[in-house]
């Protein structure tokens, strides 16, 4: 039998204004208020109750993508331990916890032109006023769905389903041709 295979996410080439982010453990969590409270305690991140907001504690983050939907992002190394731990904490509370670690790819769009680059394909207003630090949402980049999370004044975490990631990156790179060297 061959040796254990290595996890190889779709490659994303770093370009300064764009940097690949490490492979992660991800869960899509759905549930009512009881489950949200239980998960907040077990996960160690209070799940945000405001629409389109993210919260994080250490390396773990929770993005509120819908009224009962959260994307949990944690280090890849926690993959094996996190699922049973969370499942135990949730017990019989009505909920859905589905691992989607490999479904999507993450990269950072950063620097003084981050907003400008993303506006080439994202129809939302990404100005710091209407899209402050800590805001997250699903949206579109051209024809691809993305999850966008502003982690700093000039830094966004972009997640795209794995087969769309290349499309998103190539389109960003096309815009970036205009950036000053």
């Amino acid at each position: 039998m061959p040796e254990t295979l290595q996890r190889r996410p779709p490659p994303v080439e770093g370009r300064g204004w764009l940097e690949p982010l490490p492979a992660a453990t991800r869960f899509s969590f759905r549930g009512g208020s009881g489950a949200i409270e239980a998960l907040s305690r077990a996960y160690g991140v209070p799940l945000p109750t405001a629409a389109c907001r993210a919260a994080s504690a250490g390396p773990r983050a929770a993005l509120r993508l819908g009224p009962d939907e959260y994307l949990l992002i944690a280090p890849a190394a926690e993959g094996a331990s996190l699922a049973p731990m969370l499942a135990t904490a949730l017990g019989s509370l009505p909920h859905s916890l589905v691992e989607v670690s490999h479904r999507q790819v993450a990269f950072a769009v950063q620097g003084p032109y981050a907003e400008w680059l993303l506006q080439s394909g994202c129809p939302l207003d990404l100005d710091l006023g209407p899209f402050p630090i800590g805001m997250c949402t699903r949206s579109l980049f051209h024809k691809a769905e993305i999850t966008l999370w502003r982690t700093g004044p000039t830094t966004f975490r972009v997640e795209a389903w794995r087969s769309f990631a290349g499309y998103v990156v190539e389109l960003l790179a096309d815009s970036a041709l205009e950036l000053p060297a």
Binding site: S28, G31, V98, W161
Partner: peptide, 12 residues
């Protein structure tokens, strides 16, 4: 109903 759906097309 107490049920949720999640797309896992690209997970696998």
């Amino acid at each position: 109903l107490s049920v949720w759906i999640t797309s896992t097309t690209e997970q696998w």
